[in-house]
């Protein structure tokens, strides 16, 4: 019989901590980015100030559905995180993430705003560029563990990374797309973009924006946690790995300009597919499964 603390209390705690750690990481992200640009940058707690402030602003909405959909983005992101920490099915997690994305896009399509429409469409294109890579990564994890359950990763005697290094790198692309970082920040970013204002976020304000921001953190944490699971036997090393990739994504963000959606699609698909397939072929040839 599994320990109730381990199987229930810990995941719930972890789930509750997800937004906080995510926010903290965003703060660190902004600090590091500032330093890379030889600035001092905002305090590490800045993202929390932003969200609290947004929550307290007078609410403007585009229709009464917008807040529900914005909450849906946060809710489904949290649900995906719950699926991860309760060690359920990875495919389920994928579907839930897609649902969260569709909620965000739907909310941005809700008003007749040209900017948020362009942003929404581009957000869909980002989904198009990372979703195949993510499904393939999950299937690769299945090849290594012979199970679609997250628990399968933990029952493996050795770290996943040794079997699937290519997949790990491919997940890095997913991370950058999910964090809306350059070169894949076509749909929106922290700052205003010249031609699309804030893209998919344009029509959110006040508490709806706060919820979307929270959802964004949770989703970032989700990908990072999956990456940490690549070293499941010792999660500390896993977390280190995830943080390393996080740092790499910041570096990439600062040295690459934004791509067009066509090139973004080409890049993620070619690199993602090649890395994963090469990895899997090697795995089969070496008989590692």
């Amino acid at each position: 019989m599994p320990d109730p603390v381990l199987s229930y209390a810990l995941p719930v705690l972890l789930l509750a901590a997800f937004p906080f750690i995510g926010g903290l990481l965003r703060g660190i992200d902004r600090k590091i980015t500032a330093h890379m640009q030889s600035r001092i940058g905002p305090p590490v707690l800045q993202p929390f100030y932003d969200v609290i402030k947004l929550w307290g602003k007078k609410p403007f909405i585009t229709s009464q559905f917008q807040p529900v959909l914005a909450f849906g983005y946060l809710g489904f992101s949290l649900m995906a995180a719950a699926i991860l920490v309760f060690r359920l099915d990875l495919l389920l997690l994928l579907f839930t993430v897609a649902t969260a994305d569709v909620c965000l896009v739907a909310a941005s399509f809700n008003s007749k705003s040209p900017y948020s429409h362009i942003g929404g469409m581009r957000e869909l294109l980002s989904v198009l560029s990372y979703e195949p890579v993510m499904i393939m990564s999950i299937i690769s994890i299945y090849f290594a563990t012979r199970s679609f359950l997250v628990g399968g990763i933990f029952s493996l005697a050795y770290p996943l990374l040794l079997l699937l290094p290519g997949v790990f790198v491919a997940m890095g692309f997913v991370l950058i797309v999910e964090m809306k970082k350059s070169p894949f920040d076509i749909s929106a970013s922290m700052h205003a973009h010249q031609e699309i204002v804030r893209g998919v976020f344009t029509e959110f304000s006040g508490y709806t924006m706060a919820m979307v921001e929270l959802g964004h953190w949770v989703k970032m944490m989700l990908i990072l946690s999956i990456m940490a699971y690549f070293w499941a036997p010792n999660l500390l090393i896993g977390v280190g790995l995830a943080l390393l990739l996080f740092f790499v994504s910041l570096v990439v963000d600062n040295i690459y300009p934004r791509l067009t959606w066509q090139r973004m699609l080409k890049t993620t698909w070619t690199f993602g597919f090649t890395l994963i397939l090469a990895n899997l072929v090697a795995l089969f040839l070496l008989g590692g499964v």
Binding site: K58, P59, F60, I61, T62, S63, Q64, P67, S111, K112, S113, P114, Y115, S116, V197, T202, E203, G206, Y207, T208
Partner: peptide, 11 residues
């Protein structure tokens, strides 16, 4: 609970 004023889009 939060409600909100419906505003036209940003143009």
């Amino acid at each position: 609970s939060k409600g909100g004023v419906v505003k036209p889009p940003f143009l």
